[in-house]
Amino acid sequence: MFKGVNAIEFGKQFKTNEDCYKYLLQIKWGKRYQCSKCGCEQSYKGRTYYYRRCRSCGYDESVTANTVFHGIKMPILKAFYMVFRLTAKKKGMSTIELGNEVGVQQKTAWLFKRKLQAVMKKDKEDKLKGDVEVDETLIGGYSTDKGRSTKTKDAMFVAVEILADGRTGNIALQPIESFKSEELKYAIKDNVSSEAQIKTDAYHSYKKLAKQMKNISIEYSKKGTAMEELHKQIMQFKNWLRGTHHQCSSEYLFAYSDEYEYRFNKRNMRKWLFNDVVERLMNQIPHPYNYLKSLCVYST
Protein backbone atom coordinates (compact mmCIF):
# COMPACT_ATOMS: atom_id res chain seq x y z
CA MET A 1 0.00 0.00 0.00
CA PHE A 2 1.35 3.41 -0.93
CA LYS A 3 0.96 6.00 1.79
CA GLY A 4 2.14 9.55 2.06
CA VAL A 5 2.04 12.83 0.15
CA ASN A 6 5.68 12.87 -0.96
CA ALA A 7 5.96 13.20 -4.75
CA ILE A 8 9.49 11.73 -4.78
CA GLU A 9 8.36 8.57 -2.98
CA PHE A 10 5.39 8.28 -5.33
CA GLY A 11 7.73 8.56 -8.32
CA LYS A 12 9.96 5.81 -6.93
CA GLN A 13 7.09 3.35 -6.53
CA PHE A 14 5.23 4.14 -9.76
CA LYS A 15 7.66 4.55 -12.66
CA THR A 16 5.81 2.67 -15.38
CA ASN A 17 2.33 1.49 -16.35
CA GLU A 18 3.39 -2.00 -15.23
CA ASP A 19 3.99 -0.73 -11.67
CA CYS A 20 0.45 0.64 -11.60
CA TYR A 21 -1.15 -2.55 -12.92
CA LYS A 22 0.72 -4.63 -10.34
CA TYR A 23 -0.66 -2.36 -7.62
CA LEU A 24 -4.18 -2.90 -8.95
CA LEU A 25 -3.61 -6.67 -9.13
CA GLN A 26 -2.97 -6.72 -5.38
CA ILE A 27 -6.16 -4.78 -4.70
CA LYS A 28 -8.41 -6.84 -6.99
CA TRP A 29 -7.01 -10.36 -6.69
CA GLY A 30 -4.40 -10.13 -3.93
CA LYS A 31 -6.51 -12.07 -1.42
CA ARG A 32 -8.43 -14.32 -3.82
CA TYR A 33 -9.56 -14.57 -7.40
CA GLN A 34 -13.19 -14.96 -8.38
CA CYS A 35 -14.41 -15.02 -11.96
CA SER A 36 -16.96 -12.26 -12.58
CA LYS A 37 -18.78 -14.52 -15.08
CA CYS A 38 -19.15 -17.88 -13.32
CA GLY A 39 -17.75 -17.34 -9.81
CA CYS A 40 -14.94 -19.88 -10.17
CA GLU A 41 -12.00 -19.21 -7.83
CA GLN A 42 -9.27 -20.81 -9.95
CA SER A 43 -7.38 -19.05 -12.73
CA TYR A 44 -4.16 -18.87 -14.68
CA LYS A 45 -2.32 -16.13 -16.56
CA GLY A 46 -4.32 -14.39 -19.25
CA ARG A 47 -3.22 -12.61 -22.42
CA THR A 48 -0.90 -10.29 -20.45
CA TYR A 49 0.45 -10.07 -16.91
CA TYR A 50 -2.52 -8.00 -15.74
CA TYR A 51 -5.17 -10.41 -17.03
CA ARG A 52 -6.51 -13.56 -15.35
CA ARG A 53 -8.20 -16.41 -17.24
CA CYS A 54 -10.85 -18.49 -15.51
CA ARG A 55 -10.09 -22.24 -15.44
CA SER A 56 -13.79 -23.06 -15.63
CA CYS A 57 -15.32 -20.82 -18.32
CA GLY A 58 -12.16 -19.41 -19.89
CA TYR A 59 -13.17 -15.77 -19.40
CA ASP A 60 -10.07 -13.59 -19.78
CA GLU A 61 -10.48 -10.58 -17.50
CA SER A 62 -8.38 -7.43 -17.23
CA VAL A 63 -7.54 -6.08 -13.80
CA THR A 64 -9.42 -2.88 -14.70
CA ALA A 65 -12.53 -4.65 -16.00
CA ASN A 66 -15.73 -3.84 -14.10
CA THR A 67 -14.00 -0.96 -12.28
CA VAL A 68 -13.94 2.82 -12.70
CA PHE A 69 -10.53 2.50 -14.38
CA HIS A 70 -12.20 0.64 -17.24
CA GLY A 71 -12.22 2.61 -20.49
CA ILE A 72 -10.05 5.55 -19.42
CA LYS A 73 -8.52 7.33 -22.42
CA MET A 74 -4.98 7.75 -21.09
CA PRO A 75 -2.12 5.59 -19.78
CA ILE A 76 -2.77 4.15 -16.32
CA LEU A 77 0.37 5.88 -15.01
CA LYS A 78 -1.15 9.28 -15.81
CA ALA A 79 -4.37 8.25 -14.06
CA PHE A 80 -2.37 7.24 -10.98
CA TYR A 81 -0.53 10.54 -11.01
CA MET A 82 -3.80 12.44 -11.19
CA VAL A 83 -5.16 10.51 -8.19
CA PHE A 84 -1.96 11.26 -6.29
CA ARG A 85 -1.97 14.98 -7.06
CA LEU A 86 -5.63 15.37 -6.16
CA THR A 87 -5.22 13.55 -2.86
CA ALA A 88 -1.78 14.86 -1.89
CA LYS A 89 -2.72 18.51 -2.21
CA LYS A 90 -4.72 19.54 0.83
CA LYS A 91 -7.22 21.61 -1.16
CA GLY A 92 -7.12 19.71 -4.42
CA MET A 93 -6.57 21.21 -7.86
CA SER A 94 -8.52 22.75 -10.72
CA THR A 95 -8.81 20.57 -13.82
CA ILE A 96 -6.94 23.17 -15.89
CA GLU A 97 -3.92 22.94 -13.57
CA LEU A 98 -4.22 19.16 -13.38
CA GLY A 99 -4.39 18.74 -17.15
CA ASN A 100 -1.30 20.92 -17.64
CA GLU A 101 0.70 18.88 -15.11
CA VAL A 102 -0.22 15.50 -16.53
CA GLY A 103 -0.15 16.51 -20.19
CA VAL A 104 -3.78 15.85 -21.10
CA GLN A 105 -6.60 18.09 -22.30
CA GLN A 106 -8.65 19.90 -19.67
CA LYS A 107 -11.74 17.92 -20.73
CA THR A 108 -9.91 14.64 -20.06
CA ALA A 109 -8.75 15.87 -16.66
CA TRP A 110 -12.27 17.08 -15.85
CA LEU A 111 -13.88 13.75 -16.75
CA PHE A 112 -11.44 11.73 -14.67
CA LYS A 113 -11.80 14.10 -11.72
CA ARG A 114 -15.58 13.70 -11.93
CA LYS A 115 -15.05 9.97 -11.57
CA LEU A 116 -12.97 10.57 -8.46
CA GLN A 117 -15.62 12.87 -7.02
CA ALA A 118 -18.25 10.19 -7.66
CA VAL A 119 -16.37 7.59 -5.62
CA MET A 120 -15.75 10.12 -2.83
CA LYS A 121 -19.46 10.21 -2.06
CA LYS A 122 -20.11 8.93 1.45
CA ASP A 123 -22.16 5.86 2.27
CA LYS A 124 -25.83 6.50 3.06
CA GLU A 125 -25.42 4.92 6.49
CA ASP A 126 -22.50 7.20 7.43
CA LYS A 127 -24.38 9.92 9.31
CA LEU A 128 -23.39 12.59 11.83
CA LYS A 129 -23.81 11.63 15.47
CA GLY A 130 -23.77 13.21 18.93
CA ASP A 131 -24.17 16.98 19.12
CA VAL A 132 -24.84 18.39 15.64
CA GLU A 133 -25.32 21.97 14.52
CA VAL A 134 -27.40 22.55 11.39
CA ASP A 135 -27.81 25.53 9.10
CA GLU A 136 -28.40 26.44 5.47
CA THR A 137 -26.73 28.88 3.11
CA LEU A 138 -26.69 30.22 -0.44
CA ILE A 139 -23.87 29.39 -2.85
CA GLY A 140 -23.09 31.72 -5.75
CA GLY A 141 -21.56 35.03 -6.70
CA TYR A 142 -22.89 38.54 -6.33
CA SER A 143 -26.60 38.93 -7.00
CA THR A 144 -28.99 41.88 -7.00
CA ASP A 145 -31.79 39.64 -5.71
CA LYS A 146 -32.84 40.49 -2.20
CA GLY A 147 -33.42 38.07 0.65
CA ARG A 148 -32.92 34.31 0.39
CA SER A 149 -33.74 33.96 -3.29
CA THR A 150 -32.64 30.81 -5.14
CA LYS A 151 -33.22 32.28 -8.60
CA THR A 152 -29.54 33.00 -9.22
CA LYS A 153 -27.95 31.12 -6.29
CA ASP A 154 -28.02 27.56 -5.00
CA ALA A 155 -29.33 26.47 -1.61
CA MET A 156 -27.04 24.30 0.51
CA PHE A 157 -27.69 22.33 3.70
CA VAL A 158 -24.77 22.25 6.15
CA ALA A 159 -24.33 20.17 9.33
CA VAL A 160 -21.36 19.92 11.70
CA GLU A 161 -20.56 17.53 14.55
CA ILE A 162 -19.41 19.29 17.72
CA LEU A 163 -17.24 17.00 19.85
CA ALA A 164 -17.22 16.95 23.66
CA ASP A 165 -14.04 19.04 23.84
CA GLY A 166 -15.48 21.66 21.48
CA ARG A 167 -13.55 20.55 18.41
CA THR A 168 -15.20 19.90 15.06
CA GLY A 169 -15.97 16.32 14.09
CA ASN A 170 -17.31 15.40 10.67
CA ILE A 171 -19.40 17.63 8.44
CA ALA A 172 -22.20 17.06 5.93
CA LEU A 173 -23.03 19.14 2.85
CA GLN A 174 -26.00 18.67 0.55
CA PRO A 175 -27.49 20.89 -2.16
CA ILE A 176 -31.22 21.43 -1.64
CA GLU A 177 -34.02 22.90 -3.73
CA SER A 178 -35.29 25.40 -1.18
CA PHE A 179 -35.35 26.35 2.49
CA LYS A 180 -38.80 24.93 3.11
CA SER A 181 -39.24 22.81 6.22
CA GLU A 182 -39.94 19.58 4.30
CA GLU A 183 -36.79 20.02 2.21
CA LEU A 184 -34.68 20.62 5.33
CA LYS A 185 -36.35 17.69 7.09
CA TYR A 186 -35.25 15.25 4.38
CA ALA A 187 -31.75 16.75 4.33
CA ILE A 188 -31.47 16.20 8.09
CA LYS A 189 -32.68 12.60 7.79
CA ASP A 190 -30.20 11.94 4.97
CA ASN A 191 -27.19 13.28 6.86
CA VAL A 192 -27.83 13.20 10.61
CA SER A 193 -28.48 10.21 12.87
CA SER A 194 -31.94 10.08 14.41
CA GLU A 195 -30.23 9.78 17.82
CA ALA A 196 -28.22 12.99 17.43
CA GLN A 197 -29.01 16.14 19.37
CA ILE A 198 -29.54 18.86 16.77
CA LYS A 199 -29.13 22.58 17.33
CA THR A 200 -30.44 25.08 14.77
CA ASP A 201 -31.08 28.81 14.57
CA ALA A 202 -34.53 30.38 14.82
CA TYR A 203 -35.32 30.27 11.10
CA HIS A 204 -39.06 29.65 10.75
CA SER A 205 -38.60 26.32 8.92
CA TYR A 206 -36.63 24.93 11.87
CA LYS A 207 -39.23 26.17 14.33
CA LYS A 208 -41.79 24.16 12.38
CA LEU A 209 -39.54 21.09 12.38
CA ALA A 210 -38.87 21.37 16.12
CA LYS A 211 -42.54 20.60 16.71
CA GLN A 212 -42.20 17.37 14.71
CA MET A 213 -38.68 16.27 15.70
CA LYS A 214 -38.02 16.15 19.44
CA ASN A 215 -34.22 16.09 19.03
CA ILE A 216 -34.12 19.63 17.57
CA SER A 217 -33.42 22.61 19.83
CA ILE A 218 -33.64 26.23 18.71
CA GLU A 219 -31.00 28.82 19.54
CA TYR A 220 -30.90 32.37 18.20
CA SER A 221 -27.77 32.76 16.10
CA LYS A 222 -26.86 36.23 17.44
CA LYS A 223 -25.33 37.14 14.07
CA GLY A 224 -23.42 33.87 13.89
CA THR A 225 -21.79 33.92 17.33
CA ALA A 226 -24.06 31.20 18.76
CA MET A 227 -22.87 28.57 16.27
CA GLU A 228 -19.48 29.97 15.38
CA GLU A 229 -17.86 26.73 14.18
CA LEU A 230 -20.77 25.96 11.85
CA HIS A 231 -20.55 29.36 10.18
CA LYS A 232 -16.78 28.97 9.94
CA GLN A 233 -17.25 25.75 7.97
CA ILE A 234 -19.69 27.46 5.61
CA MET A 235 -17.17 30.21 4.88
CA GLN A 236 -14.35 27.69 4.37
CA PHE A 237 -16.39 25.76 1.82
CA LYS A 238 -17.21 28.92 -0.11
CA ASN A 239 -13.56 30.03 -0.01
CA TRP A 240 -12.49 26.58 -1.25
CA LEU A 241 -14.83 26.80 -4.23
CA ARG A 242 -13.64 30.30 -5.14
CA GLY A 243 -9.96 29.78 -4.40
CA THR A 244 -9.31 26.32 -5.85
CA HIS A 245 -11.95 25.95 -8.55
CA HIS A 246 -12.87 29.62 -9.16
CA GLN A 247 -16.46 28.71 -10.02
CA CYS A 248 -18.90 25.84 -9.92
CA SER A 249 -22.08 25.36 -11.94
CA SER A 250 -25.35 24.47 -10.24
CA GLU A 251 -25.34 21.18 -12.17
CA TYR A 252 -22.18 19.95 -10.46
CA LEU A 253 -22.42 21.60 -7.05
CA PHE A 254 -23.30 18.24 -5.51
CA ALA A 255 -20.04 16.75 -6.84
CA TYR A 256 -17.86 19.48 -5.37
CA SER A 257 -19.69 19.31 -2.06
CA ASP A 258 -19.03 15.53 -2.00
CA GLU A 259 -15.32 16.16 -2.65
CA TYR A 260 -15.03 18.82 0.04
CA GLU A 261 -16.89 16.69 2.57
CA TYR A 262 -14.62 13.71 1.81
CA ARG A 263 -11.45 15.81 2.17
CA PHE A 264 -12.56 17.42 5.42
CA ASN A 265 -13.82 14.26 7.10
CA LYS A 266 -10.59 12.43 6.24
CA ARG A 267 -8.31 15.36 7.07
CA ASN A 268 -6.41 13.27 9.64
CA MET A 269 -5.85 10.43 7.14
CA ARG A 270 -4.15 12.30 4.30
CA LYS A 271 -1.32 9.75 4.06
CA TRP A 272 -3.82 7.02 3.18
CA LEU A 273 -6.06 8.98 0.81
CA PHE A 274 -4.33 7.81 -2.37
CA ASN A 275 -4.82 4.15 -1.54
CA ASP A 276 -8.36 4.77 -0.28
CA VAL A 277 -9.41 6.46 -3.53
CA VAL A 278 -7.74 3.78 -5.69
CA GLU A 279 -9.56 1.06 -3.76
CA ARG A 280 -12.85 2.92 -4.22
CA LEU A 281 -12.17 3.17 -7.97
CA MET A 282 -11.52 -0.59 -8.05
CA ASN A 283 -14.65 -1.50 -6.10
CA GLN A 284 -17.24 0.42 -8.11
CA ILE A 285 -18.70 -0.11 -11.57
CA PRO A 286 -17.37 1.80 -14.61
CA HIS A 287 -18.33 5.49 -14.69
CA PRO A 288 -18.68 6.52 -18.36
CA TYR A 289 -19.76 10.05 -19.21
CA ASN A 290 -23.45 9.15 -19.62
CA TYR A 291 -23.46 7.53 -16.18
CA LEU A 292 -21.96 10.66 -14.63
CA LYS A 293 -24.56 12.79 -16.40
CA SER A 294 -27.31 10.60 -14.96
CA LEU A 295 -25.97 11.35 -11.48
CA CYS A 296 -26.54 15.07 -12.18
CA VAL A 297 -30.16 14.40 -13.11
CA TYR A 298 -30.64 12.25 -10.00
CA SER A 299 -29.09 14.86 -7.72
CA THR A 300 -31.54 17.51 -8.88
Rank of each mutant, 00 (worst) to 15 (best):
L86C: 08
H70R: 00
L86F: 10
Q106E: 15
S36E: 13
I76A: 09
R55L: 14
S62Y: 10
V104H: 01
K78V: 05
K91A: 09
R52M: 01
S94C: 06
F84E: 08
G39H: 02
Q42M: 03
Y33P: 05
R47A: 14
T48P: 10
R85E: 15
K89P: 06
R52W: 02
Y49A: 13
A88Q: 00
V102G: 11
C38Q: 08
C57Q: 00
V102P: 05
R55N: 14
K115P: 01
I76H: 10
V63L: 03
V102K: 10
Y33S: 09
K73W: 03
G46P: 00
K91M: 12
T108D: 08
A109F: 09
A79M: 08
Y50F: 15
G71P: 10
K90Q: 11
E97G: 04
S62E: 04
S56E: 12
F69H: 09
M93Q: 11
R53F: 04
C35Y: 04
G58R: 01
L116V: 01
A65I: 01
C54E: 00
G71S: 13
R53K: 15
N100F: 13
R53N: 03
K37V: 14
K45N: 05
C38P: 03
Q105R: 11
T48Q: 09
C57W: 09
K90F: 14
Q105N: 14
M82T: 02
C40W: 07
S43G: 02
Y33F: 15
G46E: 05
G71L: 05
A109V: 09
R85V: 11
I96W: 10
E41V: 10
G39Q: 02
R47P: 11
S36F: 12
L111K: 04
G30E: 10
T87K: 07
Y51E: 08
F69K: 02
E61N: 06
V83W: 06
L116P: 03
F80N: 00
D60A: 07
K107S: 15
Q42G: 13
T87R: 02
S43K: 03
I76Q: 08
G46T: 08
V63R: 08
C35W: 04
G71N: 06
Y59A: 14
F80Q: 08
M93W: 12
Q105G: 15
V68I: 06
Y44R: 06
T95G: 04
R114M: 14
C35M: 08
Q34K: 10
I72E: 06
K91N: 14
C54N: 09
K115R: 15
M82C: 00
Q106F: 09
Y81L: 15
G58F: 07
A88N: 00
M93P: 01
